[in-house]
Amino acid sequence: MIPSIEVADLWKRFRLYHENYGTLKSALLQLWRNRSEDLWVLQGISFQVFPGETVAVIGPNGTGKSTLLGLLGRVLRPTRGTAVARGRVSTLLDLGAGFHPDLTGTENLYLNGCILGMSRREVDRKRESIIAFAELEKFIDVPLRNYSSGMAMRLGFGIAIHYEPQVMLVDEVLTVGDDHFQAKCYRQIEALQRGGCAILFVSHDMAVVRRVATRVIWLRDGRIAGDGHPDQVVDAYLGAVAAVGGGG
C-alpha cells in the first residue's frame, strides 16, 4: 500500500533573529555581524502513515509538532529531507482564520472553501450539506461578526470535512464546541477513518488521544521518542512528564 504521509529524514531549521530585527536601520547596522541564531526544530524525523490510520502527535511545547504539520501542509519548506502528504490534503483552520467578520456565513463558506482548495462549483454542490452539518441554517446570511466562536468553529469544521480529504491535518482545535457537536465531529472522524483518510493531529489532551488515535508519535526535542500503540506511548510520555516534571 502506498503511504498517505511519508516523512523521511526530515530536518527543519528556524533562524531566530534578535530583537530589533525588522527595521532597515538594524539591517544596515548589523550587516557585518552575525544576525541570527539557528534553531533546529526537527532533527531527522522519519515515519509513514497509511490510509485509514489516525496518528496523534504528542509532546511538550516547542518540540516541533506544529512545525511538522506545517511542513506536511506545504506551508513550510524542509531544510533537509522530505515531507509528503499524498492526495487531497485538508487543514482544519484556526478558529476564524480565513474568515472575514464583515461577510456573511455563505460568503465566508465560499472564501474558506476556496482557500482550502475547492473550486467554486464544488462549494456550490456541497453548500447545503455543509450548512446542515454546521447547524447554521438560521444564521447563514448573518455577518460572521455576530457568530459565537462555537458557530464559527462548526462552519470551519464542516468545510474541512466536506473537502473529502485523503489526508487531514488538525492542530489542537478538536476540543472546542459543545458536547453535542463534539460527538458529531467524532462520528465524522470515524467515517473519514473508515473511508481511508489518513489523519494526523496534534493534541495535549491525552483523553482525546486515547479515544481517537490508532497510533501515537511522541516528539521530544525534535526527535521521535516513541511511536506505537496509543496506550503504550501515552503511558511512557506521562511517565516521563512525571519523572522530569516537564516531559522533555
Partner: peptide, 9 residues
C-alpha cells in the same frame, strides 16, 4: 498571516 501559516496556496 493566520491563513498564511495554516494553508498552502
Amino acid at each position: 498571516v493566520r491563513i498564511l501559516k495554516r494553508v498552502y496556496f
